[in-house]
Every structure is written in C-alpha cells, then in structure tokens.
Design a protein around this nucleic acid. Structure first.
Lengths: 212, 212
DNA sequence: GATGTAAACTACTAATAGTAGGTTACTTTA
DNA sequence: TAAAGTAACCTACTATTAGTAGTTTACATC
C-alpha cells in the first residue's frame, strides 16, 4: 500500500501521534469513511461497529460526534443533494436557449450520477441489494407495457431499441414520481394526473407519426 | 369490535378450536397480517416478534412457513406487482386509440396507487419515514429547478401552479428512472440520455409556446 | 507540577433476525 | 380403539447491532 492511497484527511490524522485528533478532523474522517461504507454495502448492511473499527476509534466517539446512524446518512444525503443541485444550476445558467438549458442540465445530472455511481444508488435509490432486483423486475414489466403502447404501430419506427427501452423506463419513472407527488396533493383527481402525462407526450408522438 | 371486522381468513381460523391450523391457511394469515404491518410501519420498523404476536403463533412457525422477513416482503411485492400489471394491461386493452390507451392505462396506475396507498409506499418507494423527508426535500429542489426551466418565459402561461409542480416532479422522476436504467446499459453516453429527454419534451414545449 | 477539559475507552442494554431441539394434537393403520 | 406417524407448534436459545452510562487518558494552561 502506497502512501498516496491515503486521503487528505487520513494524512492529517497521522500527524497526531497519540491518537487524539481534534473534533472537526475526526468528524470529517467519520463522514468520509461512512460514505465509502454506505456506497459499498448500502445503509442496512453498514454497521456502526464496523465503522468504528475502520476509523480506529470506539463506538461512543462516533455517537458523540455524529449523533446516530440515521443522522450520518442524512449528512451525506444533504451534502450530495447540495452538490447535485449546484452542478445542475450552473450547467443550466451557462446556456441561453431553452433546449440548450435542458440538454445541459440533463447532462450535468447524468454526469453527477456517473461520478458518484454506488453512492447515488445508496442515497437516492434504495437500500442496496435487498429488493432492488424484485422492484426492477416489476419496473421492467411496466416499461415493456409502456414501450409496446407508445412505440407500436407506425410511431417512432426509425428509432433504436435502446431508445425505446430507455424512454419507456423514463416514462414509467415519471408516473411513479407523479404518484409520490400526489400523496402531498390528494385533492387532485386521478383522471387529471393521467391527462397531464398524455398532454405532455402526445405532441412528441404525433410528431413521430408525421415523420414516417 | 364487531365480528364483521374479521377478514375471511380470520373467520376460517376461528373454526379450528385447538389452534392447529392447516399450513396454507396459516400462510395466508401471516401474509395478510404482514401486509398490514408493512403498510403501517414500513419494512424496518416491522418486527417478526410483533408479527408472531399478532398471528398468535410462535416465531419458528413464521420462519417455517415463509422462510424469512425478506422473503415475506418479496411475496407481497410479487403479489402487488402482478395485480398492478394486470390492472393496467386490462385498462389499456379496453381502448382503441393510442391516446385513450395512454389515458386509461395511466388512470389504472393512479387508481392502483390510491387504493393501496400506504402499501404502495412501503413496497415501491422506500422504507417508510427514515429518509423520505430528506429525499423529498432534494426532489423538491430539483423539481423547482425544472419548473423554472420549462415553465419560464412565455411557455405554458395558461396553466395552473399544480400542473407546473406536478409535471416538474414527473420530469424529475423520468430523469431518475433513466439514471437507474443507465446502470444496466453503461455503454450509452450521458449526452445521448440528455438528448432523449429533450427530444421527448420539445414538441410539447414548442406547442405551448405557439399557443399564446 | 497541579488542574481543567477534550478525546477516547470499557463494558454494558435493548431490540431483533433467525434457529436447535423438543412437545402436542390430530390422522392413519392395524 | 390403541399404537405409530406426522403436521403444527412451542420454549429457549444465539448472534448481530444500534445506542448508552460511567470512567480514563493525553494535553493545554496556569
């Protein structure tokens, strides 16, 4: 193991010979280590005992400094959420036209996801491994249904299978998100929601149908 | 408490005086009870001890019949997934035109979510209560960004605030879903993904701009 | 060198997923 | 109808893990 594999924080910690490290630095180390663990194992499968072991400190130190496992996760969520938001905002602001803003903002989002890979999964998707397989299977079924619907007959004939599959998943995600949003706006009718998405999609579909 | 509050399964179980109930019926009772608990408390906060207590049976019986907590959850996921899929398929098949199929399928989805309320949350969204507040906050921020982008200037001027907010969340959900899908199709470029969604949205936006 | 305090420790509790091995009520067979 | 077999169920445990009470140690300051 070369010294260069140590993070800035780890190097700073090595300077304290007898192991007593100032609060702020230790917090940074705990958060950094937890980030790795959550990304690697997910929330449930990351244990505070293991975290303490990695930080080479006893458990009460962890609890004194970050409060609880839940809170630790929230710290990381908050951090990542802020970074994500800033990235997209910057990308959007850098463009003039609406379509370029949209393209650029979307790209910033996907780049964020890519650079943070497993952490993004652990933070924003679900507890890793437990039921993702099953839920993804259901989503796959739903997406297939959507794909057959939208991309049947004459629409979108000149388009790749990957595009069809991807857009079907995207639409499915739009429905899921709208359903979650609905929980906080329960006064709205189900038919209204269904119409909203139809209105959003029909222009694109009509356009595709005209093109053949 | 009136007898009518008992489910079919509970009534059947009452017929067995000495408490020894056939396997199949006991399994049905366990699954039914677990469904209520997961919906009420979420996965993590539902304990197998409590489940055993409610079913009025010892824990090993539960484990003998359904294997594990994870498996129990998967049984419910599978059940709900199948029902959801059938509902939508039926609704789609009942219509002729594309836009009616889309409307009808969407409605079936939202109706499923509504009738199953807390169970849908527990099964498809996330472990209840833990981080939903924080994740929703981040989503709220993202949606606001999207809303400002899409619905700024002259587009969609004749539209309600609820529509704007809802569609912004839907779009945000589309991006999230596409990112998840991307994990299984890593060969695709981020710019491609960004373009896909722009292409899907631009026709609707252009149309809205023409209308004013 | 004595004193205050920040940083850390040992050794627990409580909750909970899962199990080993034994018991009880019902069924079948002679 | 008594013995044998078995399906349903039980008591009493283990292991893991989030979180805590109370104590000790290294260092700075006087």
């Amino acid at each position: 193991m070369s010294t260069s594999s140590l993070s800035k924080i780890e190097k700073q910690i090595k300077l304290y010979k007898h192991g007593k490290v100032p609060k702020e630095l230790r917090i940074a180390q705990i958060v950094e280590t937890a980030k790795i663990m959550f990304a690697d194992f997910g929330y449930t499968n990351s244990s505070m005992d293991e975290l303490a072991k990695r930080v080479k400190v006893s458990k009460p130190v962890i609890y004194e400094l970050v409060g609880s496992k839940e809170n630790l996760f929230k710290i990381l969520l908050d951090e990542a959420g802020k970074e994500l938001h800033e990235n997209i905002q910057t990308a959007v602001d850098a463009c003039e036209s609406l379509d370029n803003k949209l393209r650029s903002g979307g790209l910033a989002f996907f780049n964020f996801v890519k650079t943070h890979q497993p952490l993004w999964l652990a933070l924003f998707v679900n507890d890793q491994g437990l039921f993702n397989k099953e839920i993804n299977l259901i989503r796959e079924e739903q997406a297939e249904l959507v794909a057959n619907l939208i991309f049947s007959s004459n629409a979108f004939t000149s388009v790749t299978p990957a595009y069809i599959d991807g857009i079907a998943h995207a639409l499915n995600g739009a429905y899921e998100a709208l359903a979650r949003w609905w929980f906080e706006h329960p006064d709205i009718e189900a038919t209204t929601l269904a119409n909203w998405i139809v209105e959003l999609l029909l222009p694109a579909i009509s356009l595709a149908n005209q093109q053949f």
